[in-house]
Lab assay of single mutants.
Amino acid sequence: DRYEFNINGVHFTIDDAEEELIKLIEELLKRGARAEEIEEVIRRWER
């Protein structure tokens, strides 16, 4: 599934997002994580 979200006006799209990654990102968003922090999480996840 495609997952899309915005952080401070920056648009992100993840194709074939796994449910666990989506939950992790949503938790980070609730905590007010910065875009750079979430980008790093996504990079690590994709390795």
Rank of each mutant, 00 (worst) to 15 (best):
E18M: 02
H11R: 08
I22Q: 05
E26F: 07
A33W: 04
I25V: 10
R47Q: 15
F12V: 08
N6R: 04
F12S: 01
H11W: 14
E18A: 10
E18S: 09
I42V: 07
R44Y: 14
E39K: 10
K30W: 11
E18C: 06
I25E: 00
F5I: 10
L29P: 00
I7M: 06
E40M: 05
E39F: 08
E37A: 05
E40C: 05
R44D: 15
A17V: 06
E18L: 04
R43N: 11
E37R: 03
F5T: 04
R34Q: 15
I22G: 03
R34S: 15
E20A: 13
E37D: 11
N6Y: 13
R31M: 11
E37N: 02
E20P: 10
L21W: 02
I25T: 01
I42Q: 01
N8I: 03
H11E: 12
A35C: 05
E19F: 11
N8A: 12
H11Y: 13
D16N: 14
I38A: 02
K30L: 12
F12C: 04
D1H: 12
D1I: 15
I42C: 02
F12P: 01
E20C: 04
I14H: 02
R2S: 13
R43T: 08
E39T: 10
R43I: 09
G32P: 04
R31Q: 13
L29N: 04
L21S: 00
D1L: 13
I7E: 03
G32C: 02
V41D: 01
V41M: 08
H11T: 15
V41E: 13
R47A: 15
I25N: 00
A35M: 11
D15P: 12
K23C: 04
E39S: 09
R47T: 15
R34T: 15
D15H: 13
I42K: 02
F12A: 01
R31E: 10
E40N: 04
E36G: 07
R43V: 09
I25F: 01
I42Y: 04
E4G: 02
L28V: 06
R47G: 15
E19N: 10
V10I: 13
E26R: 09
Y3I: 05
E39L: 12
L21R: 01
F12W: 10
R31N: 12
D1W: 06
A35H: 09
E40Q: 06
I22S: 04
L21G: 00
G9P: 01
Y3M: 06
G9Q: 05
I42W: 02
E39Q: 11
A35Y: 10
V41I: 09
G32N: 08
R44V: 13
E4P: 02
E36R: 06
E27D: 11
G32Q: 09
G32V: 02
L24K: 09
R31S: 14
A35P: 11
A33Y: 05
V41Y: 05
L24W: 05
D1R: 13
K23H: 12
K23T: 11
E4F: 04
A33E: 03
K23N: 12
E4W: 04
E18Y: 04
A17H: 07
A17D: 05
G9H: 05
I7T: 05
W45P: 00
V41F: 12
F5K: 01
I7K: 01
E4Y: 04
L24H: 10
E4K: 02
I7N: 04
